[in-house]
Write a protein that binds this DNA or RNA. Structure first.
Lengths: 215, 215
DNA sequence: GCGGAACCGTACCGTACGGTACGCCTGCGG
DNA sequence: CCGCAGGCGTACCGTACGGTACGGTTCCGC
């Protein structure tokens, strides 16, 4: 029973959401130690119920990832009143949300799980994470970039390229290092520098693509 | 039996390397379908031998990752004759090597394996990949950046920051998308654009940190 | 109060796989 | 020719876990 790519709102009953929460907690705690027995015990439900609701282990995993991934909220920017100031603030907000998200335990766990899954010819989890992560940001950011270009606040040829540059400037090596378990990048460590990094990335992006840029 | 972080050269006999090759092939083909039985069959050796040589499954995995990761070679740059042209070419070479590496099947497999491993309180594989990937690049790149700053070819405050910006500009969202199994990023797809991306990333980096940059 | 649906808890089954034991072959030093 | 070390192949064991079955309990509609 393949779940839909898009989760609207009440795809799951409260009880089911409690189960998914338990599953996610286990995932965050134990890495992939997500066994059906453990979830059942944690959620105080029977394995039979799990199988009835989610089909099999993969279904439970998919539902969990999907449900959590959909929780990521993007900032909403008013495109009609774009000024240099508003643009900068919007970019900073995007950078801040992006950084805050990727350094979170939940995001790390979800990405790890999806990557593990992708290592087995199964791309469903990867697609969900992609769709709710990078692609969601892209969908939100590109219109803003294009509006800013129309307003002569930015210069670039391809909004796709511009988005990817922004992504790179914000994320850099932070995500891959966290995914690989780099001990020298503690969450608090990165967290403390978020504002600095956000500002730096925005400055750099504007230096490259701002109206006054010579590129 | 923890293996040393650094592999010099003949840590493994040719026969052992054949086994590791088989293990890596299985890893690339089957994702994590690396079972001891499969490796033994592929390498035409007995499981008992595997355990004698590598201790346990983790040891075999570690040896495989370590052995392969150490094969990544970094470009060597002559720091004494830095000119704007040499610097640009060096940066492009770094970008090219970095991109070429991360889009390779082997790199994707190794990173996925290490990330899966990191999802279970085990950071050994992650450390190996980090050490031979991002950190190796950093070690090589930073001296060059600093030399270029001394030669007034670059401007920046922190060479650490400069390295990370370069990394971000080169890698962007390519690696995470590949790790997540993004179908719209085929290897040939990315490969065809390497030269364009390399040039773009270098241009952008120099625009930000080149001597004439206003930042 | 009653029947049934949903669900909990637990016992159970089958399998896959990590790890071990053993029999056999080969090559080599004496 | 003998003994033995190294290694191959295979059979075997124990366990963990996915998936199923079933008895008992709660809750809801009637």
């Amino acid at each position: 029973m393949p779940l839909p790519i898009k989760i609207s709102e009440e795809t799951f009953t409260p009880r089911q959401q409690a189960v998914l929460t338990a599953a996610l907690d286990l995932l965050v705690e134990n890495g992939d130690g997500l066994t059906m027995t453990a979830v059942a015990r944690r959620a105080s439900c029977s394995k039979e119920t799990l199988y009835k609701w989610f089909g099999d282990r993969d279904g439970l995993l998919t539902a969990t990832v999907q449900w959590q991934a959909a929780k990521v909220r993007m900032p909403h920017v008013d495109r009609s009143h774009l000024s240099a100031k508003v643009l900068r603030e919007s970019l900073e907000q995007f950078a801040r949300d992006l950084l805050t998200t990727i350094i979170g335990e939940v995001s790390i766990t979800l990405n790890r799980t999806a990557i593990t899954h992708a290592a087995q010819e199964k791309d469903s989890l990867g697609n969900i994470v992609l769709e709710n992560g990078p692609m969601a940001i892209r969908r939100r950011l590109k219109p803003i970039l294009e509006a800013a270009r129309d307003a002569r606040l930015l210069r670039f040829n391809s909004s796709e390229d511009a988005y990817r540059i922004f992504f790179g400037l914000v994320v850099r090596d932070v995500q891959i290092r966290l995914l690989l378990g780099d001990k020298s990048l503690t969450q608090s460590n990165v967290e403390a520098n978020i504002e600095v990094d956000v500002k730096a990335a925005t400055d750099q992006f504007l230096a490259l693509h701002g109206a006054k840029a010579n590129t």
